[in-house]
């Protein structure tokens, strides 16, 4: 608790204090009414939502595999999920640039095999940003779900089978609801981390995808306008908390229903 106070609450308090420098709310007025900042904030939240959904769709089966596969496979799988996790984000981002480019490995393979006649625009647009971000954030989805899946009582699944429920029904009404806490944790983590993303979107989006962290960084480092940067950060923090509360609400009522 003291740790949280010293390294989180106090700095956030100072930040909020800075955002109302001179007792004026001008910084908030601009952050909340200027089309640029509001628009980029909404874009950022939308991108974070896309990334969370894609991560969930990809991560859930992987987590299931890790939890259910026989002996050596879970260990092997975990290594494969963790390996990129330990590589620098910048290196991975440049790696994607080589793979996804107009003359990148993927496009060249597709072109030479005659599957497509013109290169797919995979890089320097939203597609590139999503691929890069999902790749970085996937482990944050897989591990919380995996941890919950391992604790699921398989007796319940057997019981449902014994009672004659078809596979889909078992998944929908028994197994999936039991893993929901993991899904909530994973989605929350991925969503919150996505919102603050910075270098990956700047490089893989070719400059055409702007996220709010980029604008905040600009105010901090380029223009030294710290009170406005603080106001933008406070708005971002509030928006994030709001989404978190909504997510919790949504999932909790779901949990009760099951």
């Amino acid at each position: 608790m003291a740790f949280l106070l010293a390294f989180y609450l106090v700095p956030v308090g100072l930040l909020l204090l800075q955002s109302v420098e001179g007792g004026s709310l001008a910084a908030y007025d601009k952050a909340l009414t200027d089309g640029l900042y509001v628009g980029v904030l909404l874009d950022t939240m939308l991108i974070a939502a896309y990334v969370s959904i894609v991560c969930l769709l990809l991560g859930y089966p992987v987590a299931y595999f890790l939890a259910a596969a026989p002996a050596p496979w879970p260990t092997v799988g975990i290594i494969f999920v963790l390996l990129p996790f330990w590589t620098s984000i910048l290196v991975r981002t440049y790696g994607w640039m080589i793979l996804l480019g107009r003359n990148g490995i993927i496009n060249r393979l597709l072109l030479e095999s005659g599957l497509i006649s013109a290169p797919f625009p995979l890089l320097n647009n939203m597609t590139g940003v999503l691929i890069g971000m999902v790749h970085v954030l996937l482990p944050y989805m897989v591990f919380p779900i995996y941890a919950v899946m391992r604790r699921v009582d398989t007796g319940l699944v057997s019981a449902a089978e014994g009672l004659g429920a078809p596979g889909w029904q078992i998944f929908r009404r028994v197994y999936f609801p039991l893993t929901l806490p993991g899904v909530l944790a994973g989605v929350t983590l991925v969503y919150i981390l996505s919102i603050g993303f910075f270098i990956t979107p700047a490089l893989l989006g070719g400059g055409k995808v702007i996220m709010i962290a980029v604008l905040i960084e600009m105010q901090v480092r380029q223009f030294l306008n710290w009170s406005f940067a603080a106001a933008l950060s406070a708005v971002l923090l509030a928006a994030t908390l709001l989404v978190y509360l909504v997510l919790r609400r949504l999932f909790r009522s779901d949990l009760q229903w099951s």
């Binding site: 089309g35 628009g39 400059g207 702007i210 600009m218 380029q222 223009f223």
Partner: peptide, 13 residues
């Protein structure tokens, strides 16, 4: 710089 850069971001969007 600050005002023109803001306009640049708007233009980019």
């Amino acid at each position: 710089g600050p005002a023109v850069t803001e306009r640049w971001s708007r233009w980019m969007l």
